[in-house]
């Protein structure tokens, strides 16, 4: 037994893709995030955990500027950089940014259109209508989302006719179609049964070869299973961010330990 047979889970990190620095964020008078600093490495799964209202979803929605759509949302301080580019620079077009940073939501929300049209929605609204290109995208993305085999014979049926887990995978395929580098997932399994959840988790594990994934989850076991790094938030503060093994086996902070072991409050 000279060399370890199992890959080390605490090895070197991939290079950083998203850097959040000194980030303060408010909804109206209520500050939601306090002085967040973190690096999100590319081709890793980063999980955000913490109790409800801890700011984890808020931070996720800051990464693709979905919070722009909320009236009272305001950045007080700090930056979010992707590949070194400040995404809140006034020259940045938020709609273009969202094509590069896709998002999957808590409640699966396919459009009431066919499966085919759901996948290519992002292309259609860009004015892409070439049949061959659309066909290719549909097949590639549905395969990528591990849904192709289940739906290839009924691409023209409504996306809403699928089961919950299939719908969520359809939403992932749809997000992949616009060619993002990053996939943000906001509690993607919270409405799914364990089998559908397991499928999504398997998919996430596959997808990290091609995408950088940030996942918000209430389910700590899910964070433990799928993520490489875990960030624990509490009341708008980033309490601890570390390799997932480290967080779940020997966290540095007492608050983290209390939360993950269910001794909270």
């Amino acid at each position: 037994m000279d060399t370890p047979a199992v890959e080390s889970h605490r090895g070197d990190r991939n290079p950083s893709l998203i850097r959040i620095s000194d980030f303060d964020f408010s909804y109206g008078d209520k500050q939601a995030l306090f002085d967040i600093n973190m690096d999100i490495a590319e081709h890793e799964v980063t999980a955000f955990i913490g109790p409800s209202g801890c700011g984890k979803s808020t931070l996720l929605r800051c990464i693709n500027r979905m919070n722009d759509l909320i009236e009272s949302a305001r950045i007080d301080r700090g930056k979010v950089e992707v590949n070194g580019l400040d995404i809140y620079d006034e020259r940045v077009d938020a709609t273009e940014l969202r094509k590069r940073i896709g998002m999957v939501f808590q409640k699966s929300n396919p459009f009431p259109k066919s499966i085919y049209e759901n996948v290519i929605y992002g292309l259609r609204i860009q004015g892409i209508n070439r049949k061959s290109e659309l066909d290719e995208t549909v097949e590639r993305c549905l395969k990528g989302a591990a849904l192709w085999e289940e739906v290839k014979d009924r691409l023209d049926t409504s996306g809403l006719s699928l089961s919950g887990g299939q719908q969520q995978r359809l939403c992932i395929a749809r997000a992949m179609a616009v060619g993002p580098d990053v996939l943000l997932m906001d509690e993607p399994c919270s409405a799914l049964d364990p089998v559908a959840t397991a499928k999504i988790e398997e998919l996430i594990h596959e997808l990290k070869n091609d995408y950088t994934i940030v996942i918000v989850t209430h389910n700590m076991q899910q964070a433990a299973r799928v993520s490489d790094r875990t960030a624990f938030f509490y009341m708008g503060n980033l309490i601890e961010m570390n390799a997932t093994d480290q967080i779940f086996m020997s966290p540095d902070k007492e608050q983290t330990e209390a939360y993950i072991s269910g001794r909270f409050g």
Binding site: A224, F248, M249
Partner: peptide, 11 residues
Amino acid sequence: EEVARYISLRA
């Protein structure tokens, strides 16, 4: 170590 890790992360 592996057992402890598996129990911690995989439930």
